[in-house]
């Protein structure tokens, strides 16, 4: 069943603030095995010009993905999440995410397409800090594979 095209352009309310903790960044950096000291050592981060430790480039996905839950669970959209795979992912940074940030995410459905029975949806997530300054934009392409009976 094709997704509702009329939802293209729909934006969802900004999420409540996610506070980025130093130890959460450390946990993520360790999980990907990345020993860059900018992620764990405040002095090393400061030597690079950052006010505190920064997060690895893909860390913010943990926040934007959670926020996108509002979109994929929108009953009007009618997305069967059990058929969804992650197609593409992209980030454009104004500045790195850093410890102490209080980040809010605004998700927008940028496109809905249907190709060969698959539904393809692009979600754009704008991430702003507490002062309203832009930090990063994330684009996620989700592909809902055609259900077996439709294939």
């Amino acid at each position: 069943m094709a997704l509702d095209q009329s939802l293209v352009g729909r934006s969802y309310p900004p999420t409540s603030a996610y506070e980025v903790g130093r130890e959460k960044i450390r946990e993520f950096a360790e999980a990907v095995g990345d020993r860059n000291p900018a992620y764990t050592d405040q002095e090393a981060a400061k030597a690079l010009g950052h006010p505190d430790v920064i997060a690895p480039p893909t860390f913010v996905f943990t926040i934007t993905f959670k926020a996108a839950g509002m979109v994929v669970q929108d009953p009007q959209l009618g997305l069967d999440y059990s058929r969804v795979v992650h197609g593409d992912q992209k980030f454009a940074y104004t500045r790195p995410v850093r410890a102490g940030d209080r980040l809010s995410v605004t998700s927008t459905i940028e496109a809905i397409k249907s190709m060969a029975g698959n539904d393809i949806m692009d979600i754009r997530s704008e991430v702003h800090d507490e002062s309203g300054e832009h930090v990063v934009t994330a684009w996620m392409k989700l592909v809902a594979r055609a259900a077996a009976e439709e294939a």
Partner: peptide, 9 residues
């Protein structure tokens, strides 16, 4: 400096 990455997809 990881912050040198301004776009990644």
């Amino acid at each position: 400096d990881p912050a040198a990455v301004v776009e990644y997809g």
